[in-house]
Amino acid sequence: MRESDILEVEIIKEINCSKEVALWNYWDHEHLDVVHEGYKKSDILYDKNNFMFRVDNIKVPFPFLKFLTPVFMVQHDENTLFTYAVQMGVISKTTITVNSKTNSSCEIIMNYKFFLNGWRKILKPFLKIMIPKWNEKVWLEDYPIKMRRQKVVDMNFKDFKGLPSKISSRSKKNANGNSFKLPVPRPINSSRDLHPLSIKFRSKNSK
């Protein structure tokens, strides 16, 4: 195993949302197949506290072709999350570092590493071109979500509750900061927990 077998791509972006909103977006797995065109299906098999294991069904730009991708995600520390995945036999490691700039802006460093040993070397020029393109597409799909999430958080929005009933409470000064806690809550029988091997799977007959 050599370091030269690694393809590394790093993309840095800034956005007008808090670090907590940016991290929430990465850990909100329920939006993947609704918002992102590239996802056909996504099943969480296990998640707890700061880590998660899921299997994604990814669409590729060839008709009728999809592939299954196991994904492991961990919130390594307050600012850093790692994602390990295997796509078509290629192991990848994504490091996302989110640094606060102000209370409502942050910098996101997205570092991708692909282990391209043996025959996989031939994928290098293709991935070098495709990764920034794919990153841009996903970034643009997520961008309005992060901006809107920041807007509602600033209006004192509470997950699974909504805005406060009093209009005067819908303001930034009343909002208790942008709290971000893992795991991001999902309803019972969420569309992410329908795989029979999922730890949270409940059959239709169970109560």
Binding site: R149, K161, L163
Partner: peptide, 8 residues
């Protein structure tokens, strides 16, 4: 504003 997470 969706009461779940604030979606449109």
């Amino acid at each position: 504003i969706c009461p779940h997470f604030g979606g449109e």
